[in-house]
């Protein structure tokens, strides 16, 4: 479970996130929507424990900066970040060792799924942008986290990888994981979200649950709000 309570993030005078609160339960997929500069990546980084903030973020009821919370968290950054001098396989080995986890075959399964198994011995510096993104996703999942946050995960992926990733989202939900996906590609997440949050100017301007019966689609709502409409 992920709980974000009254989180405000400021860069000097600029308020990047303004009093944000939301909660995503186990086995739920939430999407964070918003135009560029809305503050999506900032709140994602706050949750990942990479930024200082005012407020409280709990991962499975633990403060997000505690070691136990870090154990439970997986993070896919907006820009894939890998080590130039480590092979693909070594990245996953490193993650498992760093998180003190034995490899139960998850690493190879992930690599196979994202078509990286034959690139296992390729160095990070030799990977294309799409492969970097795939490896970054594998690194975030290999230690089997219970809360996973994805920051624009579809960018740079080929159709096969997008299909696989969507299946991963659904499997994670099935297995009771908490999933938060930040994106501005609404159509890519339309089919499987349980909760949707729309951000604008650092704050939530709308919140919707999949069970809500509304005549206006998420996409229409998004454009209505982010192109000058009223708050929902």
């Amino acid at each position: 479970m992920l709980q974000v309570n009254h989180v405000t993030k400021k860069y000097g005078k600029l308020i990047a996130n303004r009093d944000i609160s939301f909660q995503i339960g186990d086995g739920e997929i939430a999407v964070l929507l918003g135009p560029n500069g809305a503050g999506k990546s900032t709140i994602i980084k706050c949750i990942a424990g990479l930024l200082r903030f005012d407020g409280e973020i709990l991962i499975d009821s633990l403060g997000n900066k505690t070691l136990n919370a870090k154990h439970r968290l997986g993070y896919v950054p907006e820009m894939p970040a890998v080590y130039d001098m480590l092979t693909v396989g070594e990245h996953l080995e490193f993650m498992l060792r760093a998180y003190k986890m034995e490899d139960d075959g998850t690493a190879d399964r992930l690599l196979e799924r994202f078509e990286l198994l034959d690139k296992k011995d390729k160095l990070g510096k030799e990977l294309s942008k799409g492969m970097l993104q795939k490896l970054s996703i594998c690194c975030a999942l290999v230690h089997r986290p219970s809360v996973i946050i994805f920051d624009e995960p579809m960018v740079g992926l080929d159709p096969h990888a997008i299909k696989q990733l969507k299946e991963v989202f659904l499997e994670l939900r099935q297995n009771g994981a908490t999933v938060l996906i930040s994106t501005h590609m609404i159509d890519s997440v339309e089919a499987y979200w349980d909760k949707a949050y729309i951000m604008k100017d650092g704050a939530f301007v709308a919140e919707r649950s999949a069970s809500d019966t509304s005549e206006i689609s998420l996409e229409d709502l998004f454009f209505a709000l982010t192109e000058g409409g009223e708050d929902a």
Binding site: A48, G49, L50, L67, N68, A69, K70, H71, L73, Y75, P77, A81, Y83, F94, M95, A98, Y99, C139
Partner: peptide, 11 residues
């Protein structure tokens, strides 16, 4: 400059 060392659950 990479996120992993920050995310790692160690003191």
């Amino acid at each position: 400059t990479l996120p992993y060392v920050y995310l790692m659950p160690e003191p």
